[in-house]
Design a protein around this nucleic acid. Structure first.
Lengths: 339, 339
DNA sequence: CGTCAGTGCTGAATCGGATTAGCTGAGACT
DNA sequence: AGTCTCAGCTAATCCGATTCAGCACTGACG
């Protein structure tokens, strides 16, 4: 430390008042009578000395640190983290809070250590984020602490949670195709394990809308949610002679693989086959034509989580954030099917 | 807080010793004589009560918080942040440190607030990360505090910095092409503004190796480092009838655009044209064929920055981290040029 | 038998704020 | 003149650690 830090006592002395008075003025408290004159002197002294309260000392007394712990299983997962962290960060900062960030990598031991380390530093609350929307089991040491789940749901539904409205995203994707005129020959691409919330809900949303319109999926191409397996699976699908008018890819990486497969199969997007997808990643906007994708509102998710955590009244509900549709270029009017 | 926290005094009482003794035992200090007997009793009591020291109280006295502030201009930038933060995080955690993360968005006012907020919370040091490797000007309020620059260089070279060895990356890219047999018809894609370190150095590395081998670049396709403009520029280049054997794209996004352009121009990678690139992003591995890319060692950069910051002796040098070559599929033997 | 060197430990101060309890002096009222 | 009220402030304590200064006891030695 360069300049030995200015303390409240320094300010008080300079203003010719007691530490108590200075403290009350700085805290802006009106429950003690302080003359305008004294208040001004304190404020002036504080400014002159460039006083900054020592938050550690304050926290020792108040038990509040204006600090939040953001614990996630995976930060690295492509794009996901960036905007989500940005949303949390800027919102926290707007409330004069700072964010501790931690990554567990799915390891319970690491998670315990992380939570303990944050607890030892007196964080005011936790945001538990999962990057793959699966059931969460926040550690027991968090009992009694403020907690918001982000992109995951606990078995115990009394913990407030923020997550994208995946079901509605499914509806949006389905409607986008219906509105373009697609009815027959729509195929879903990507596996849908029951325990993966996003998979389950996206599919449910699609099927809900289709059912209401009397439309049925022509099939599902099962594959992990990555470009390479999606490419293989979709190419095999095309190679087997099956023809479709549209693909609903369960995320943008799958759609990327599908684009590559369509290309190799000599099918043009969207003239020969339309594609809709989920995530709204950068990748989607880079594809040619731009991929039609129902976007995860990362920034908003992060923002809302922090907002809920800092809210006066503790929320207890599950908050679903709308997923906006990005791009339209990969959806076209279906070709009249070859007789 | 659920259970009223156990304090050192509780431990001391239970062990039948003074707070002082308990403190020395817990700190593992040997400069005061403590009987094995007493030591054992304290340790035992601490375990029984599940004692955890209040780090805020400790910090108040010691001025050390075991906390680092990571300030970056942009966290969101695709992929960049993820691994870099992971590297910093896991290293910090290994040293029992926690990371405050902040993003300035390039806004100096935000930067000031962020740094102040972190300073007020007594961070032990700062890592200043820039996502676009340009000259950094760390705020004056950091004078006298530990600081490591990450992915950027200050005008004042006495501040320790960690950055990828971009020059060598250029050499690697150049050699990769030379070894495959390319000599004529190599073109660089992407603009190289002088103030962007990565651009300057990558180009310099390429030219250094080429010069040593008597090879000359056949030209440069100028365009911003994004898929769309790269696509346009490269397609126009091909459309103008120019033919090349290899492209050196200044990052993976540019390479993505180049792939699209090559595809539209009916050129196959790598049979008709080889492509090397920089960044080693996920995108590179998803392209078909997989993109040959000199990777930014994000994780290692983050790791090293934290390691330097926490090192006993303050480093003062610039540390350049080697950039590994990823993938080989997009580089092939050059076609005999049409006479 | 006095004292000197260790050994093993404790009391009190300290860090920088927040907070509680209470004090002083002036004017109003009786 | 006595005392009540109230405005305007201060002293002292607390938060939970670290750390300085020093005390009591034991055994050895002259």
């Amino acid at each position: 430390m360069p300049t030995p830090r200015v303390t409240l006592l320094d300010v008080a002395r300079r203003a010719g008042v007691s530490r108590t008075t200075a403290s009350f003025v700085m805290a802006g408290r009106t429950d003690m009578r302080i003359s305008a004159e004294a208040e001004h002197r304190v404020l002036h002294a504080a400014r002159e000395l460039n006083y900054r309260p020592n938050l550690m000392a304050r926290s020792l007394r108040t038990k509040l640190t204006r600090t939040i712990g953001l614990v996630s299983d995976t930060i690295a997962t492509e794009a996901f983290a960036g905007e989500l962290i940005r949303g949390s960060l800027s919102t926290a900062l707007a409330h004069q809070h700072l964010l501790f960030i931690g990554e567990t990598g799915g390891d319970d031991t690491v998670e315990m250590q992380l939570v303990q380390d944050m607890l030892d530093r007196g964080v005011d609350g936790f945001i538990f984020a999962s990057m793959c929307t699966r059931p969460a089991r926040p550690p027991a040491s968090l009992r009694g602490h403020r907690l918001v789940l982000l992109n995951c749901l606990a078995d115990d539904h009394r913990i407030p949670a923020v997550l994208p409205d995946e079901r509605d995203a499914g509806r949006i994707a389905a409607r986008t195709l219906l509105e373009a005129g697609h009815r027959d020959g729509i195929v879903m691409v990507g596996e849908t394990p029951a325990e993966v919330y996003a998979a389950r809900e996206r599919r449910a949303g699609v099927e809900e809308v289709f059912a209401a319109e009397g439309v049925t999926l022509s099939g599902t191409v099962e594959c992990p949610w990555w470009p390479e397996p999606a490419y293989q699976a979709v190419y095999d699908f095309f190679a087997s002679g099956k023809r479709v008018t549209a693909l609903i890819c369960l995320n943008d990486r799958v759609a990327f693989g599908a684009y590559q497969a369509a290309d190799r199969a000599g099918l043009a997007v969207p003239d020969d086959v339309s594609v809709v997808s989920f995530d709204g990643s950068h990748l989607a906007s880079w594809l040619r034509p731009q991929l039609t994708s129902v976007a995860i509102p990362h920034f908003e998710l992060g923002r809302l989580a922090v907002e809920l955590l800092l809210a006066e009244a503790a929320a207890h509900e599950v908050h679903r954030v709308a997923m906006p549709l990005h791009g339209r270029a990969s959806v076209g009017v279906p070709r009249p099917r070859p007789a």
